[in-house]
Design a protein around this nucleic acid. Structure first.
Length: 531
RNA sequence: GCGCUCUUAGCUCAGCUGGAUAGAGCAAUGCCCUUCUAAGGCAUAGGCCAAUGGUUCGAAUCCAUUAGGGCGUACCA
């Protein structure tokens, strides 16, 4: 819709025109402050220019009126245009808001270490990534969702140790002394019992076998991770194991030979020359690779797989890491501009107004699966998707548990359910409704139709700006329009019943499509709570 | 210290590449169910958009400085 308008204006004025949404629908559907920017070149007042421009529009197919108000140019879309678009949307429901972008995108997100179940901090990045993924798919991108499994490095050793300690204390009833760092949590119980069955109890006291124990256990942990993601409607296309990458190590080092050097028996990457604060160690004196090494091989592999664009979603605490990886990408001979790293800010928790610190050691971690159980996947997704991903967020755990009207997902679900109820109470058949016309609606209805038809440009905007929260924002305002309309305007039994129902079809389509992009299923009925 | 980032209503947050009177939800107060589910609608109240200066016809939005918060500044991941 907006594209049509903006293309038309571009042609007419010979320049890009800024289109915005007027504060008040009474001003029209779209407006532009173009007269202000023309004022200087034309040496005339914005008001006069706006007047001239407004009168230069004739009756057109798209606009029913073009008016100038205080220097703004306000456009009102014609009934024909809106109703035709609405008809088209209803006849091509699965195509609504879709586009035909072709480029191939690799989206990496979550990538939490396989050493424990996902906690609430991971959930934000997970929801953000999956929403981007759904938006991209809808827009026609060939996008792949990938999870990078860090199954090499110290944290894996720690996992083996943690399971052994747990088993020795709780299964073998030994008294154990805990080292400074180890993992703790209920999930260890299942792993320890599984290990007992698989390896026998000897393994828990044989330090040389902890690695073996860990490598077995990480698959179990990944099963937990995948299951809790699935509970939230999040799915990955591919998983890449860090451990599988190192066979490529020599070749990759060769490839970026001019970016690395040896000093003090270690291998360094000259990342400072590419904008990092310092050069970084890639391989330690004893030959063990650092974390960065894994990422270098991984990113090389990503680029060799040949995508047009790469998106990484990282926790904000990794932001200092971006320059190093970019440097490596450059040294590998690729354009680091193709790699876009988005940050998902921390979620800080409050409990009864007090900061609540999670720590794996203390074992007081709030798991993603716990929250899903408490408030449901829909509410969790909606809350996280509604917040700009790059600002820190405070959550009160006690608020989190509320499942009532303070949760906006109910507001939107209710709007959709209301429509279904009305439809079920009408005597008109679907065919009757579809055959009726969206023309000749009253002003409120007309405005609602316009709101519902805005979805496609919201999708496009939300994805291209990576500002996923625009979609829930829009759905909230569309639901508000619907609720108000419902209150103001009786539908069943009126002369306009069929066409109003058709309008509701469009609104429901928009709500349903929007919700599905958030990974939420639209409800046809709201189960009312019993008092 | 340096780098990144944030500061908008009592609380949690929107506010698009500068544009019309600063927005929503929750919390507060008051109205609206013999009418398609009141998980709804309407209204009231609540703001020096952290501070100062600059750019401009025009700034919450851009720039600079200051104050305060978060994160990073590992041969941990």
């Amino acid at each position: 819709m907006k594209q049509r308008v903006s293309a038309l204006l571009r042609e007419k004025f010979g320049r890009e025109v800024v289109l915005e949404k007027p504060k008040d629908r009474a001003f029209g559907h779209f407006s532009t402050p173009i007269a202000f920017s023309l004022a200087k070149e034309l040496r005339k007042s914005p008001m006069v220019i706006a007047e001239d421009l407004a009168s230069s529009f004739n009756e057109s197919e798209i606009f029913s009126s073009v008016e100038s108000v205080k220097g703004y140019l306000n456009f009102r879309l014609s009934e024909n245009f809106l109703s035709e678009y609405g008809d088209w949307a209803l006849q091509n429901q699965s195509e609504f808001g879709k586009q035909d972008k072709k480029s191939k995108i690799l989206l990496e997100f979550v990538s939490a270490n396989p050493t424990g179940p996902l906690h609430i901090g991971h959930a934000r990045g997970a929801v953000y990534g999956d929403t981007l993924y759904r938006l991209a798919k809808h827009l026609g991108y060939d996008i792949t969702a990938e999870y990078y499994v860090n199954d090499a490095g110290n944290q894996i050793d720690l996992l083996g140790l943690s399971i052994a300690l747990y088993a020795r204390e709780n299964i073998l009833n030994e008294s154990v002394e805990y080292p400074e760092s180890y993992y703790r949590g209920e999930y260890l119980e299942g792993l320890a019992n599984g290990a007992l069955e698989k390896f026998g109890k000897e393994i828990f006291n044989d330090e040389s076998r902890y690695k073996e124990l860990a490598l077995w256990a990480k698959d179990g942990v990944m099963d937990l991770v995948v299951a809790s993601l699935a509970d939230t409607n999040i799915h990955f296309d591919t998983f890449v194991n860090e451990s599988s990458l190192y066979s490529d190590w020599d070749r990759v080092m060769q490839k970026m030979a001019d970016g690395i050097y040896k000093k003090e028996e270690k291998i360094w990457i000259a990342s400072e020359a590419k904008g990092d604060d310092n050069d970084r160690v890639v391989v330690r004196e004893d030959g063990r690779p650092t974390y960065l090494a894994g990422d270098i091989v991984y990113h090389n592999q990503k680029f060799e797989r040949g995508y047009d664009h790469y998106i990484n979603i990282w926790g904000a605490d990794h932001h200092g890491y971006i320059p190093r990886v970019n440097a490596a990408v450059e040294y590998l001979g690729y354009n680091s501009k193709k790699l876009e790293t988005l940050l998902s800010q921390m979620v800080s928790l409050l409990k009864d107004g007090e900061p609540y610190k999670m720590s794996k050691r203390a074992g007081n971690v709030i798991l993603m699966s716990d929250i899903v159980e408490e408030i449901g996947s829909d509410a969790l997704r909606f809350i996280f998707a509604s917040k700009k991903s790059d600002t820190a967020l405070e959550f009160d755990l006690s608020e989190f548990k509320k499942q009532d009207s303070s949760n906006p997902i109910f507001y939107i679900q209710y709007a959709h359910a209301r429509i279904q109820t009305i439809l079920s109470k009408s005597n008109f058949s679907k065919e009757d409704i579809m055959a009726s016309s969206l023309k000749g609606l009253n002003e409120n209805a007309d405005s609602l139709l316009f709101d519902a038809l805005l979805l496609p440009e919201i999708i496009e905007d939300a994805f291209s700006s990576r500002q996923v929260q625009k979609l829930p924002d829009y759905l909230k305002s569309l639901a508000a329009s619907l609720h108000k309309f419902y209150y103001d305007c009786r539908i069943i039994g009126t002369d306009d019943e069929a066409k109003l129902l058709k309008l509701l079809f469009v609104v429901a389509l928009s709500l349903k499509t929007g919700l599905s992009l958030l990974g939420i299923e639209a409800k046809d009925r709201m189960a009312k709570e019993e008092e």
